[in-house]
Structure formats: structure tokens, C-alpha cells
Design a protein around this nucleic acid. Structure first.
Length: 415
DNA sequence: ATTGCTGAAGGG
């Protein structure tokens, strides 16, 4: 049986702050190729930061050279306790025994919960939708898997992460900040947005822009890989996909990438056009608006020239900046593919954004989370995905499909 | 608290 109903993730206590830097080469805008970013020491980080501060004023155009902060291990705050698992009664396999009344009651309640409630999720990540699109059943197995038994990340994923980090560091510093609670984490997110807005306004390029908002009644959170202006002055979203093989992805995979960037656009456009209210954010996420920010977070806010003391302050400031900065909506969506092996460019795609079609897809995927429809595994023609799935041996969808396959074959033969 | 909560993306 699945251990269903565990908390969604255990979470580290740290946040990451993106610092626009000028560093030494504010003017040169040179980029060092082939730097190894993985082992920059703390002292180096500090000196780079100082350099950045001394040249704070000019965040313009190309001069944005970025350097690194490596998240320091150790420093484990007394934040999320690892106990995270709520052992609800859903996993009880005593079907014959009626059990005490309160257990039956709890069980009934459990069954009436939608997946969002069942897994204690206040929001979804944009990439949750993408894995859902790949295989909804696989995504659920992953969520239900106890955290300590989760399959390790593949080599391709790790390689992808490090390539993305290296690219990010070309554009700005990453400084790790100790956060004490969710309020602190959201404050860091806001600080990052506040730092990136002026860069965008002055025509610069940014990476890892946080986006969020409500879509079809469900709160969604994501991070835009890259935003920049094209030669024709359009605001372009770029999503880099690194590949373990020097080939372009199959259609099934490309579709998930397309949905990802389309949802980013929906969220970003909503943010700059003031669709989301700050009270709404606070309420949906159940944040404490009057919560004093942690000392490290405050310190970074002050460094950015902000006088804020509570989460409410910083959220309101962020929302004001977003709506009054007259940032454009995203004009074009671009997927870029390159080979992990030698960095070779494999191709790129311009994604056609059709709001109606995107919303239809979003509505379909979200309807699962709302409990409006049954779970759905891969279509019969996509069963090749099962060959690389960790759960294929226990997959109920697969069993069910195998049992019905002969009929489908017959039907096909009969035309 | 008979209640609470999550870095997202990472690639197939």
C-alpha cells in the first residue's frame, strides 16, 4: 500500500537571493567562458559581493556579469522537522475488519478529499503540470512514495541542473540566505523579483524569475528560466533544455515543454498586469502578514535599499513595483535544446501561444487535482514511457490497460 | 493546534 498523505516535501531552511552585480567588469561586460563555478569558496563570494555593492548603480544592458555563491551546507535551522509524515488511516489494509468508528469516519473523510487536500498541497508547481502531462499516474506514485525511498535523480538531471546553474551565474550572483519560515522564503522571492524588475526595465537579461498566481482556482508557482529582449525589442522567454542524447525530444516530451512556457507566460502576464492581489497571495498561502522578517532576510532587504520589516510590507512593495513598472507582457516563447555532452546546440522552437488552448489544457490537468475526474495514465500509444518508469511493476493503470488491450486490438482489426 | 506544511526545476 502507498503511504499516502505525507507532507509534500520536507524543505530546507535556506533561500537563494539573486543579486544583480556590477562587479569589476560593469563596463567591460566580458564573460569568462569555461569557469568552474562549482567550487567557489565563501571568501571569494564575499569579495565578489563587496565588489558588487561598490558598483551598485549601474544595472544596465550587457554589463551584468554574475558570479557565484554556493549554498553552504551545515547550518541546519530548526525549521521543518523531518517527521513530515502524517499517517492517515487510508493505508490500513484491514478491509475485513470494520474497525472502530472513528477510523471508518476518518477513512471516509480521506476518500472524499481531492488530491490537493489529500497530499496537503496549497499550490502546484508549473513543472508538476508537466510531469502530470508526461504521466499522471507516475506523478502520483512519486508523490505517494515516502521521501526517503524516492528514486535518486538521474545523472542527466544532475547534469542539467549544473548547466543551468552555470548559465544563471553568468547573469547574476546567487547568495544563500538563511530563512526561518515560509514568510521568510516568500520575502526572498519578493526580493529577487524587486531586484530583477529594474534590470528588465533597462532592457537587460535576467534568469530564474519567480512567477506565481492563480490559474483556474489553483495557486501555481514557477521560475522562468530566462527573460530577455530580442533584437526587435520584444520580450522573449527562453527555456533551455539540456539533453543527455544529441537529439531533439520526441513530440510527447516537447509538448510538456510547450505547456511549461505557456503557463509561465500566463503567470508572468498576470503579475505585471495586476491580476493577483497581495491579500490573495497571503490568504491562499496562509502566510502571516505581520510576521517580522528574519534577521538575514532583513539584512539583505536593507542592502537592497528597502525599509521593510514585515512580510506584508515586502509583498505590497513587490506588487506595486510589478504593476507600476509598466513591464511588457511576454511576446514570444522560445525553447532551446542543447546536448549535455559537448554543449552543442541542437535546435530551438518558437512556441505558439494560444490562450484558449493553453487554458483548456490547464483546466484538464487541474481537474484531476480538484477531484473532478479519475486519474489517467498514459495513452496506449505512449506505453513506451513505461519502459523507463520506476513504478511500471506496480502500476495499476498499466494492469488495467493490459487487461483491456485485446478488445482494443479487435476493435482496430474490425476498423 | 481533534492542526500544520512545500525552494522549482532537473530529463525521459
Amino acid at each position: 500500500m502507498q503511504g499516502g498523505g505525507e507532507a509534500h516535501g520536507a524543505g530546507s531552511a535556506d533561500g537563494e537571493l539573486r543579486k544583480a552585480t556590477g562587479s569589476d567588469d560593469c563596463e567591460s561586460g566580458e564573460k569568462k567562458e569555461g569557469d568552474d563555478f562549482s567550487d567557489i569558496s565563501d571568501s571569494e563570494l564575499l569579495s565578489l559581493q563587496e565588489a558588487a555593492e561598490s558598483c551598485d548603480a549601474y544595472i544596465e544592458g550587457e554589463g551584468l556579469e554574475m558570479v557565484d555563491g554556493v549554498t553552504s551546507p551545515g547550518k541546519i535551522d530548526a525549521t521543518t522537522s523531518p517527521e513530515g509524515q502524517l499517517h492517515n488511516s487510508a493505508g490500513l489494509s484491514c478491509s475485513e475488519m470494520p474497525g472502530p468508528p472513528e477510523v471508518t469516519q476518518r477513512k471516509r473523510k480521506q476518500e472524499s478529499l481531492n488530491p490537493l487536500q489529500k497530499y496537503h498541497m496549497r499550490y502546484l508547481a508549473v513543472t508538476d503540470l508537466c510531469s502530470q502531462m508526461w504521466c499522471e499516474q507516475q506523478m502520483v506514485y512519486k508523490i505517494e512514495q515516502p521521501a526517503d525511498l524516492l528514486p535518486e535523480k538521474t545523472a542527466a538531471m544532475n547534469e542539467g541542473s549544473s548547466i543551468h546553474l552555470a548559465r544563471e551565474l553568468e547573469v547574476h550572483d546567487v547568495v544563500s540566505v538563511t530563512t526561518r519560515n515560509r514568510e521568510d522564503s516568500w520575502a526572498i522571492k519578493c526580493l529577487n523579483i524587486l531586484a530583477m524588475i529594474p534590470v528588465l526595465q533597462s532592457g537587460g537579461r535576467i534568469r530564474e524569475f519567480p512567477v506565481f498566481g492563480e490559474l483556474d482556482g489553483i495557486f501555481m508557482v514557477g521560475v522562468i528560466d530566462e527573460l530577455a529582449y530580442s533584437s526587435s525589442g520584444e520580450l522573449e522567454l527562453r527555456e533551455l533544455k539540456t539533453r543527455a542524447t544529441p537529439t531533439l525530444p520526441r513530440l510527447a516530451q516537447k509538448r510538456t515543454h510547450e505547456l511549461q512556457v505557456c503557463v509561465y507566460k500566463l503567470l508572468f502576464d498576470g503579475m505585471v498586469s495586476g491580476v493577483l492581489q497581495s491579500e490573495c497571495l497571503i490568504q491562499i498561502l496562509n502566510l502571516r502578514p505581520e510576521q517580522e522578517l528574519g534577521p538575514e532576510v532583513k539584512e539583505h532587504a536593507i542592502q537592497s535599499g528597502l525599509t521593510v520589516s514585515t512580510l506584508k510590507d515586502i509583498i505590497e512593495l513587490t506588487f506595486l513595483n510589478l504593476t507600476f513598472s509598466e513591464l511588457p507582457r511576454i511576446d514570444s516563447l522560445k525553447l532551446e535544446y542543447c546536448y549535455q555532452g559537448d554543449g552543442a546546440f541542437l535546435g530551438c522552437d518558437i512556441v505558439n501561444f494560444k490562450e484558449k488552448s493553453v487554458m483548456e489544457q490547464v483546466t484538464f490537468y487541474l481537474s484531476f487535482w480538484k477531484g473532478q475526474r479519475e486519474i489517467q495514465g498514459v495513452d496506449i500509444e505512449d506505453t513506451w514511457k513505461c519502459r523507463m518508469c520506476n513504478y511500471s511493476n506496480i502500476c495499476e493503470w498499466r494492469t488495467q490497460r493490459t487487461n483491456t488491450a485485446p478488445y482494443r486490438t479487435m476493435a482496430k482489426r474490425l476498423k
